[in-house]
């Protein structure tokens, strides 16, 4: 579904991604973790071309991102993304947030889009809030709406960029629950997150990044089960994060 092939990216002289390669199969859930500044957010943003890269290629569902012929808006409309800071559109109601791209990008009718949006809103447990504006919802609620907004586009793959790290601790679980449910239904997912509980529960594979490189890329069982077999950097990271 996603094939990342030897991606290199520089900001000026500074190399943020070095020879990153991996594959995400259809229906697979891949968790990407690593210390801050390791390039994991940058890598996931390369997958839907929100960040340009200078070398290598990423192929999403048969479409090459590096190819100049690719229609990026069309590609992005098939890739769902959830952001750290939700990025709902504050000037629109929740319903409008859920329908605007369906109508303007996919060309769906207003009725069809609204029906679809409201069904998804119900699925994330927020049907009662359809007429509010994003600013009236809590962080956890906003993030659930953001997930519903991405799902409304019928994406073939979902990208999550630290979806819980801007949330107050008591709201993390309501968002993770939605993500777990999504994973169990067979959605292809690539998630940048530090939530190792989530990784243990639903991930098929774990990728560990450090200083712009993919250091570990293995199954969940190998990653958590055989800690001593992991690289030093991954061990240090796990030691810090698993203390709690």
């Amino acid at each position: 579904m996603i094939s990342i092939q030897n991606v290199n990216k520089w900001y000026g002289d500074f190399q943020v991604l070095t020879n990153c390669s991996t594959e995400v199969q259809k229906g697979e859930v891949v968790v990407v973790c690593g210390p801050s500044g390791s390039g994991k957010s940058t890598l996931i943003k390369c997958v839907n071309a929100l960040e340009p890269f200078q070398q290598g290629d990423i192929v999403v569902d048969g479409t090459s991102i590096a190819s100049p012929k690719t229609n990026l808006p069309r590609l992005r409309s098939r890739v769902g993304m959830v952001f750290q800071h939700f990025e709902l559109f504050p000037h629109l109601t929740i319903t409008e947030n859920l329908t605007i791209a369906q109508i303007k990008v996919l060309g769906r009718s207003k009725d069809e889009a609204t029906q679809k949006g409201l069904a998804l809103l119900d699925r994330v447990g927020l049907a009662a809030h359809a007429h509010k504006h994003p600013g009236q919802l809590s962080g956890g609620q906003q993030q659930r709406v953001a997930i519903a907004r991405a799902l409304a586009m019928d994406p073939v793959v979902m990208l999550f960029d630290e979806p819980t790290s801007a949330l107050d601790p008591e709201m993390v679980n309501e968002v993770l629950d939605v993500m777990v449910q999504l994973a169990q239904e067979g959605m292809t997912m690539m998630c940048v997150t530090h939530e190792m509980g989530f990784a243990r529960k639903v991930a098929d594979r774990v990728i560990f990044m450090d200083r712009g490189q993919i250091v570990e890329d293995c199954t969940k069982d190998t990653f958590f089960g055989d800690i001593n077999g992991r690289s030093d950097r991954a061990q240090q990271f796990l030691a810090k994060i698993l203390q709690h």
Binding site: N48, L50, P73, M81, E87, F89
Partner: peptide, 15 residues
């Protein structure tokens, strides 16, 4: 306007 709004709109496939 926060930069992320632009990214979110692009991510939804908007031109």
């Amino acid at each position: 306007i926060p930069r992320g709004q632009m990214g979110a709109a692009y991510a939804l496939g908007m031109t």
